[in-house]
């Protein structure tokens, strides 16, 4: 279960003077859903392209299923599947025709396809949709067909580049439940996303920012990171005065307005919430409440990204 099926060591890619991926190292274990999180332009797709052997790294190496991702592509390809961000299906083919077409293109035999197609339709919840034309399918359903195509040859790892981008919450939820189903079958899922709230869905994840890997681990591990300190939610009237006051207070490295309340990071463990409340009261503010809130994964990411700025000594 702990076998690393993907390993990247110091993986780097430059385009001219621009470093798209900067010394990225990580491991993905068999059967896990590994989330690769980051904004547009962070280097997610470039990393995938290197893992797939489509792009040569400028520096560093990657191994996929024990083979060198750049030099042994031919040995890796048959064992992996890939759904790119702009994977386009033929709009005039039906779901079943699409699978038969790609199956033939992959060189799968007819008997194998006859087994494989119904199994995939079942797995992806496409049974009953066989005859529908791809062009009549909504985004979420097309994504399932694309996924079915990527799974035709029974790959051990499937790479999905932003499978949920732009989708509604129900469609996103369905894609994620499919990913769990794949993982349950022992298929390793490498998935990229720019939705920070999808971080929670992964068994492990890595956050990439400006080409650099900032953080990796299981969501619960990351949340337990000790040096995050506390996040407090503060309400007080008038809000703008409270905000100005808290901003001038050195124990809070970060103060931000959160709807009708204020969020602060508190690093000084010796400061009590009662003390904060008292000081706000002394300053003449009213309706004061100071409550701890659980840091979100995004809080933690921001903390790590900006740790240098918050805490130059540490």
């Amino acid at each position: 279960m702990d076998e690393a099926v993907i390993r990247a060591e110091g993986l780097t890619r430059r385009f001219g003077t621009f470093t798209a991926v900067d010394h990225v190292s990580f491991e993905v274990r068999r059967g896990e859903i590994f989330g690769f999180l980051g904004p547009n332009g962070a280097g997610k797709t470039t990393t995938i392209r290197m893992l797939l052997g489509l792009l040569e790294p400028t520096e560093g190496r990657a191994w996929v299923l024990g083979h060198d991702a750049t030099r042994e592509t031919a040995r890796i390809r048959p064992r992996i599947g890939y759904v790119s961000q702009r994977f386009s299906l033929y709009p005039d083919l039906s779901v079943e025709e699409t699978l038969r077409f790609y199956g033939a293109a992959y060189g799968l035999s007819f008997p194998r396809l006859a087994d494989r197609i119904p199994a995939l339709l079942e797995l992806l919840g496409l049974t009953g949709q066989e005859r529908r034309l791809v062009r009549h399918l909504a985004g979420g359903w097309r994504q399932r067909v694309a996924l079915a195509v990527a799974l035709l040859h029974e790959p051990e790892i499937v790479f999905l580049d932003e499978p949920t981008a732009g989708m509604d919450p129900l469609a996103r939820r369905e894609i994620w439940s499919l990913l769990y189903r794949l993982a349950e079958q022992g298929i390793t899922v490498f998935v990229t996303t720019h939705y920070m709230d999808e971080a929670e869905q992964c068994s492990r994840l890595a956050l990439i920012h400006n080409g650099r890997l900032i953080l990796q681990g299981a969501p619960t591990e990351l949340k337990a990171m000790a040096d995050m300190g506390r996040v407090l939610e503060i309400a007080a009237t008038p809000l703008d005065r409270a905000l100005a006051l808290l901003r001038g207070w050195s124990i809070f490295p970060y103060v931000t307005l959160h709807g009708a309340r204020i969020h602060v990071y508190l690093r000084a463990p010796e400061v009590s919430l009662e003390e904060i409340r008292r000081r706000l009261e002394t300053a003449g503010l009213e309706s004061i409440s100071v409550e701890p809130v659980a840091p979100s994964l995004e809080d933690i990411f921001l903390w790590v990204i900006e740790r240098e700025r918050f805490d130059p000594a540490g």
């Binding site: 980051g38 904004p39 547009n40 332009g41 962070a42 720019h194 920070m196 920012h209 400006n210 809000l239 703008d240 905000l243 931000t256 307005l257 995004e298 990411f301 921001l302 990204i305 900006e306």
Partner: peptide, 20 residues
Amino acid sequence: TGVDPVSRRELWDLLSEFHL
């Protein structure tokens, strides 16, 4: 949409500033 977490937070801080 699609911006990094730091910029996202800075954008929201800007909006809060205008809001106030």
